[in-house]
Amino acid sequence: MILTIAARELRSLFLSPLAWSILAVTLFILAYLFLSQIEAYVSLQPRLAALEGAPGVADIVVAPLLADAAVVLLLVTPLVTMRVLSEERRNGTISLLFSAPLSMTEIVVGKYLGVVAFFLILLGLLALMPLSLLAGTELDLGKLAAGLLGLTLVVSAFAAIGVYMSSLTEQPTVAAVTTFGLLLLLWIIDWAGNRQMEEESNALAELSMLRHYEPLLKGLFNSADVAYYLLVILLFIGFSIRRLDAHRLQP
């Protein structure tokens, strides 16, 4: 049942030009970044060759690419998630789901998985870029895998926040703006702490999405970082379910 909702969500995304234009624009920008990283690598190569244990392609090309991809997705996620629940409420189609034998959890999780599936397609296409390097050079696949896992977690967390914001309002644009604001805040929350006392900044840094992403980009798989993203996802999915229930209780 969850999959039925997820499949329809994904289908509806691709039936509108939005998904296609998002895919096209995002991949175009990332491809441009990818190529400029490669150029940087090529110009550095003579000096790197002289070094012992020099950073490889994975460090110089892939890690920055994935880091930039997270920022681009931060901008894009609100556009994908904004209409997930808000539009259903606005068009009254939500009552189709409410009067069907479905639980709120199934509705929210189904919608969420549909959005995540869209991002997985996007990430799959993105992953082809670094993988194409395999044709000409060696690549640290472990680092690439860790980085992609990190990006998947980051985007899944973004999507969960987006779905929640979409459950709060009937206006897709309001959902987009609030999602963007919250994502950006969670991204930069540790900046404020940087200049403060050490301890204080630690707590804020723990909340920052960026802080938990960086180790994965370096190929460092830390279960605390993964747990952070899973917690964010669970928290906001839970909020969304509660929110839909509340919609039924109090209009």
Binding site: R8, S12, L15, S16, N91, G92, T93, I94, S95, L96, S99, A100, P101, L102
Partner: peptide, 17 residues
């Protein structure tokens, strides 16, 4: 809910399907 079929005031149709 399995035993209910409901048509709200505004038909709950997806325009893109």
């Amino acid at each position: 809910k399995q035993a209910i079929g409901y048509l709200p005031e505004q038909p709950p149709v997806y325009r893109e399907l």
